[in-house]
Design a protein around this nucleic acid. Structure first.
Lengths: 315, 315
DNA sequence: TTGTATGCGTTATCAT
DNA sequence: ATGATAACGCATACAA
């Protein structure tokens, strides 16, 4: 018991004991067993994060932000990634709740009822990140993708484009892209426009898919003069294909993406896109979760991290 | 005890008990406490991964590969990311060993002696991934970055470039880039060449840094006719800056990167770079670790996942 | 400031 | 096939 104290609250023991323990720890290479500690203390010091169906760079930045906040406070961030569908997520949640997390961060808002029930039953604070919703399980940090779509619709209409198309990849799992599409419709409607073409593909989110989309656009009977693609990867794929085909961007066709990765600013012309603060979103998600874990705040916290439309050369 | 059995080896109990337990589990929303289970069984079913100082896309792909292998076998993959220096990694290893992992995957081969000692003392199987070494802690999966550098040196020399430069970003933490630089020197030496300029910067690995590097190259008294950059991000930054300045690539200056991300194939001209199988590397790391955990293989396993030089338009 | 008794929720082991 | 008992390694609560 004295050793346990010497390790966790060094000030509570005499300096003699403190040193003896420190020496022994070093000599033996002692490392506390977190299974035993967690079982006895009835707290895990664990926050689990489940990342579903979003691109590497988004979650890397967001996780970094969350980790920055939680680790210094003694929390371990257990990441279960790679879930693509709500059903896969459900299994991941079941597995992770066994680790008795003190808080859970989920990406997006799309999940099964069983997942919701499990989380409620576990009574664990939850933050759903990336996207705002009116019906969160508990708390919610992110941006309003519909508003982002509206902003893009207005932008394209303001710039004088009239025959606007939407192309999305991986729309079987990118639910947020649908919200942006809805927003695009709403933004265009303000100007009396409707999208002249909407393509929701399940193709992988790669530059090649973007290139194919561009070729389809050029052949399209609806003759779009601008296109909003569901993310930067396919938008850049489309832009580069246009350049290969000698198609002028934005004169012949304007191209816009979503995500705001660094590289979109570096290319020629730079890509019009929508950026949001990924790392800050991770930080805010962690902070909000901490407020809930430590009961400093009631359920239902809502943090809008906003977004920024970067109007650049491709529109 | 019967419940515990019904859950873990359903075939060992009667169908009557099996059903009763299943119903109760559902009604109660029971989830086994992994702290108690791990403590009692003296096994964690946990593999920890520590990712240090590598770019998001590399580790996302590699982690996906590792996860694919381990999760179906009942292992949880606990990821501690974000360590940049060997000292940070040391702290991460100390923290993670408390979770009694059955195996540990580390990125790279650069670490402190204390880290090595801890891992030895813990007696846990270790796979060092991403880079091959002659002195692994235990087992090793990756590629030989020096060979990759040699390949690039030969390629540039073969294409007729004679005034070759190397520019690296974040070289305070990207130890593998140094190995590639060594390889470049060796590859060029075969042709009687030496790099006309070597710049090892601690600047962030961003397209802007690449752009700055390119401007420096153009002003350089050594007048390089080709440059090997330490990764694709800065290489693309350099290429795009060249295009903005109206500098012909590869005629005026050839540009090569490292990494082999998808986007390098999509740009114009496509970037010469070196690709390796990230996901496969993750899978092989996990498989090798499993062989060690289950004592199917002795320490010292070595898996070379190889690489591929993609000779494209920028050289 | 230090130490003792007890329990955390599960599994290994050995009986029945 | 099922059950009783004793760990697992640590922290809580309380006593000295």
């Amino acid at each position: 018991m004295t050793v346990s104290r010497a390790l966790r609250e060094p000030d509570a023991v005499s300096s003699r004991v403190r040193e003896k323990v420190a020496t022994a720890v070093r000599d033996l290479g002692y490392l506390p067993n977190r299974f035993a500690g967690g079982l006895a203390a009835r707290r895990s010091r664990l926050v689990t994060v489940i990342v579903s169906g979003i691109s590497a760079s988004v979650y890397a930045d967001a996780l970094r932000g969350a980790d920055e906040v939680l680790r210094p406070l003694g929390y371990e961030v257990l990441i279960s990634q790679l879930t693509e569908t709500p059903e896969q997520e459900e299994r991941a949640v079941a597995a992770l709740l066994g680790w008795q997390p003190e808080g859970v961060i989920l990406s997006g808002i799309e999940r099964t009822d069983a997942t919701r029930r499990m989380l409620h039953a576990a009574g664990v604070p939850v933050v759903e990140a990336l996207e705002l919703t009116d019906t969160p399980i508990d708390s919610n940090v992110g941006l309003d993708h519909r508003s982002a779509g509206i902003a893009m619709g207005r932008h394209l209409a303001d710039r004088g484009y009239r025959r606007i198309a939407f192309y999305g990849a991986r729309l079987d799992s990118d639910f947020r892209a649908f919200r942006r599409l809805e927003g695009l419709r709403a933004g265009l409607a303000e100007c009396g426009l409707v999208p002249v073409r909407v393509v929701c593909s399940e193709a992988p989110s790669t530059p090649e898919t973007g290139a194919r989309f561009l070729r389809e656009l050029l052949d399209d009977a609806a003759a779009p003069d601008a296109v909003f693609l569901s993310n930067d990867t396919i938008a850049m794929g489309a832009l580069f294909e246009a350049q290969r085909l000698g198609v002028a961007v934005p004169e012949r066709i304007a191209i816009a993406g979503f995500g705001g990765s660094d590289i979109t600013a570096a290319i020629n012309p730079p890509l019009t896109t929508i950026r949001f603060a990924r790392r800050e979103m991770g930080r805010r998600a962690a902070l909000t979760l901490l407020d809930r874990i430590e009961r400093r705040a009631p359920p239902g916290q809502r943090v809008d991290v906003g977004f920024e439309l970067l109007a650049r050369g491709t529109t």
